[in-house]
Amino acid sequence: MAEAQLQVSDEVAISIQNMNKWFGSFHVLIDIDLTVQRGERIVICGPSGSGKSTLIRCINALEEHQKGSITVDGTLLSSDVKNIDTIRSEVGMCFQHFNLFPHLTILENCTLAPIWVRKTPKKEAEEIAMHFLEKVKIPEQADKYPGQLSGGQQQRVAIARSLCMKPRIMLFDEPTSALDPEMIKEVLDTMIELAEDGMTMLCVTHEMGFARQVANRVIFMDAGQIIEQNEPEEFFNNPQSERTKLFLSQILGH
């Protein structure tokens, strides 16, 4: 949509050049070239095993790449621990299985990283946490434990937890795949709000409605390579590659 395009700036948030990754002898990511502008929202889709999750996990160094370069916000992702720490505090991540810390309350989940990584005083951290919990619309759950919340609520807490670190880029790894259907909408709404606030987002998902509504770019990956990328309307209505057509027919068919 036109309004969405306006928020994309000229600054480069993520620059991936000729990135390759092997798991043992298995070549899992092949010659990945990707540039993400600040404010861009990118949806990555593809069949399972195509390497899409691995790709975004390389960006915040949860996985190591063997060849090529990844630069996030001007910092090169190298083996220097300082660089990795800098990048991780700029990049927030949401997992498919939420990965909330079950032994801490919701509030404590959100204040943990600001207190221990950014050395924020506790009071201030709690204010920040409540602000973002209100943003994801569950401030009243602050003193409960993750086990007491529904899946949709937990994923929204996970989003708030990442936001408390004030990241400039958010990565989403299949955030709604583990949710019951009736809870998917509340999480997607949160993500749409985030996008409208101008957050740079990379999202691995199968939710094509979300892609249509919010994404600037849809990337299709298969067998470790980027096969096709385009604006959403063009991508869905006019897929160029055979593999993209096959995938879209399987996803959108039923």
Partner: peptide, 16 residues
């Protein structure tokens, strides 16, 4: 943003 910090060939320093 600032230019990329350091490249792979910056040489070995003790703090590394």
């Amino acid at each position: 943003m600032s230019s990329p910090t350091g490249t792979e060939t910056s040489g070995f320093r003790l703090s590394m």
